[in-house]
Design a binder for these strands. Structure first.
Length: 609
DNA sequence: ACGCTTCAG
DNA sequence: CTTTCTGAAGCGT
């Protein structure tokens, strides 16, 4: 479906749930507390703070009730709340495991594998297809005795629910939970189904995994995330229609009034820099050109409403005001959309491996070469172990040769030099990191060597040289942080069984083909954007509402899957110049002739059910 | 490809 | 020591 909101085509056309584990409420990040409480339930009712270095990185509700807050100094926390339970949280292993568990659990409900992690404890699910299917299954004469189907191929998997009303909290809170049976607004109905799905997922998450969760339900990532903040913890909120105003009065739609009530800095996607730019523009001041950071205007509040209704505001103005070096192109359109509750960003495809793995530690004082080498060894050891836990195929352990699901192409060493005392002005902005990188040496993938041997080699052949490039001076530096990252991790194209391995190995050899294909894809994406961008921005908001199911148009790659089903007339192995296809579901890259079998593998293995 | 910035939790 | 320990994405060269 497509929906026009305030003159904006919501290209995402998706029905989303933003899911977030609870007990992180206002911090709404760092899943650290829930994990500790999970391991030791008595902690739930005690003030609990998680310590990293000298600060409280997060704390539970009881601690916050007693006046603690995130990133507070430990000694302050102890003086404010002497009986606070402090646990060390520098080793993130358990939190990463909990995060993976949460992600795998939610992903298992997805049909389209659009399941995106945000940090350790939040997940976006695009459940458009599930809602579509269940709306199409409804018996409109018996809405209150509906059955929500969670698996297309098994009608017994699911739960009973009342489709005539929404469940959970609503925004605005005065809204009725009942659907109007006379009009039966399709958007309202679908959000109702979304609310029941969210409730079911929260219930299952708690019964199966023991975690409570906070969820927001709306039509795009922005709104789902923001509305999820309304009630916490262990709650869900649905942003109810109307999403567009009937007439001229734009304050009558719930999206505009909801967005208007936020401070600009609360909007995800509007960070420190952009918020500062917006405030400066609306207050008609030059953007802080390095003036006193002490009198920061950054603390001032400015509502979305003030920006949105500012004279002369619009995508073009914002592009001009906010644009600059390091600012993404199209920032004006993007921010204008966000201010109006529009977010075209798709929920990302589920990933089997991260794009990057990094390990870092911070230091009070690190100014000798020997100490640096010692720390580099510790960090490198952790990095190799992380690579082995996160990038290795857990199955078929007998295949010694290539268990790597993905290979990082580069390794990067970053440091944060401690800011030097300054002769005057003390305008010492540089808490910035500096880095050097080099190709990842292939010996790190050798599983026959012990980790220690690999680490030693990595240290002497790669990391120490990188460090010398980064800090050519023998002395005089003092580092407050070191980070080592395995970067540019790209999933190996693969399929189950022997054929898949052959195919994936073939591709590793055929770089040329791959690159050629990637260029094609980029061009196609740009073309799509041109088409979308070419439509004019209407002055007035117009309603545009497509009916259920209208977006079931096959994508480019889906069409290729169909074509490829019959297409076994391909030639030899040496097919340089063959057009490649990518599976829409798992993003695996392969020649068209492999897509048929690959697609059947998806269907049969029931991934995502 | 590489170094850096911005945004996120 | 405006912080912690990450991860994704995009700009400019």
């Amino acid at each position: 479906m497509a929906l026009l909101l305030q003159g904006w085509l919501l290209a995402a056309r998706r029905w989303l749930l933003a899911q977030e584990t609870a007990a992180t409420a206002r911090l709404h990040h760092h899943p650290l507390c829930p994990v500790f409480e999970h391991e030791n339930p008595r902690l739930k009712h005690l003030p609990l703070a998680v310590q990293q270095k000298h600060i409280v990185v997060t704390c539970n509700y009881e601690a916050r009730r007693r006046g603690l807050y995130k990133l507070q100094l430990i000694h302050q926390a102890k003086s404010v709340c002497p009986d606070v339970v402090i646990v060390l949280g520098e080793d993130l292993t358990r939190f990463r495991n909990a995060s993976k568990d949460l992600y795998a659990f939610l992903r298992s409900f997805s049909w389209n594998a659009r399941c995106e992690k945000l940090g350790f404890d939040e997940v976006f699910l695009d459940v458009t297809d599930i809602i579509d299917y269940n709306v199409s299954n409804l018996n409109f004469n018996h809405l209150s005795n509906a059955f929500f189907c969670l698996a297309k191929d098994d009608p017994t998997v699911g739960f009973a629910y009342d489709a005539s009303r929404l469940t959970g909290h609503l925004h605005p809170k005065t809204a009725s939970a009942n659907l109007d049976p006379a009009s039966l607004d399709p958007l309202h109905l679908r959000l109702a189904l979304g609310s029941h799905l969210a409730e079911y997922l929260r219930t299952r998450l708690e019964s199966d995994k023991g975690y409570t969760a906070t969820v927001g339900i709306s039509t795009n990532k922005l709104l789902a995330k923001l509305v999820g903040n309304t009630y916490k913890p262990n709650a869900q909120t649905t942003l109810v229609p109307p999403y567009i105003s009937d007439g001229e009065d734009e304050s009558e739609d719930n999206v505009t009034s909801f967005m208007d009530s936020h401070d600009v800095s609360q909007i995800p996607g509007i960070g420190y820099k952009i918020a500062q730019g917006l405030r400066a523009y609306v207050r008609q001041r030059p953007a802080d050109f390095g003036a006193e950071p002490a009198y920061d205007s950054s603390k001032e509040t400015m509502l979305v409403h003030d920006v949105r209704t500012h004279a002369g505001i619009g995508p073009e103005t914002l592009e001009r005001v906010l644009g600059g070096p390091n600012v993404p192109r199209g920032i004006g359109v993007r921010v204008w959309g966000l201010l109006n509750g529009c977010d075209e960003a798709e929920v990302g495809q589920a990933r089997d491996v991260p794009a990057q793995i990094s390990i870092e530690d911070s230091y009070i004082r690190l100014d000798s070469f020997d100490a640096v080498v010692k720390e580099l060894r510790l960090l490198a050891n952790k990095l190799i172990q992380r690579m082995q836990t996160d990038l290795l195929d857990e199955e078929d352990e007998e295949d010694e040769d290539d268990r790597w699901l993905a290979h990082p192409k580069a390794i990067r060493l970053s440091t944060r030099p401690r800011r030097r005392e300054n002769s005057e002005g003390s305008r010492n902005r540089s808490f910035a990191r500096i880095s050097k990188s080099s190709p990842m040496p292939t010996f790190v993938f050798n599983l026959k060597e012990s980790v220690d041997v690999v680490v030693d080699r990595l240290l002497s052949e790669t990391l120490v040289p990188l460090f010398r490039r980064l800090h050519p001076e023998q002395r005089g530096w003092n580092l407050s942080l070191i980070n080592i990252a395995a970067t540019n991790i790209t999933e190996a194209a693969r399929e189950q069984g022997g054929v898949g391995r052959d195919i994936s190995k073939m591709f590793r050899r055929q770089d040329e083909v791959l690159r050629q294909w990637k260029v094609e894809e980029t061009a196609a994406l740009e073309a799509e954007e041109v088409v979308e961008g070419s439509s004019e921005w209407p002055e007035r908001r117009r309603e545009f509402f497509e009916r259920v199911g209208s977006e079931d148009v096959p994508t480019r790659s889906q069409e290729r899957v169909c074509d490829a089903d019959n297409g076994w007339e391909s030639e030899e192995d040496d097919t340089v110049g063959v057009a490649l296809s990518r599976c829409e579901e798992c993003r695996a890259v392969m020649p068209p002739f492999a897509m048929g079998a690959h697609g059947r593998w998806h269907a049969q293995s029931g991934r995502g059910n």
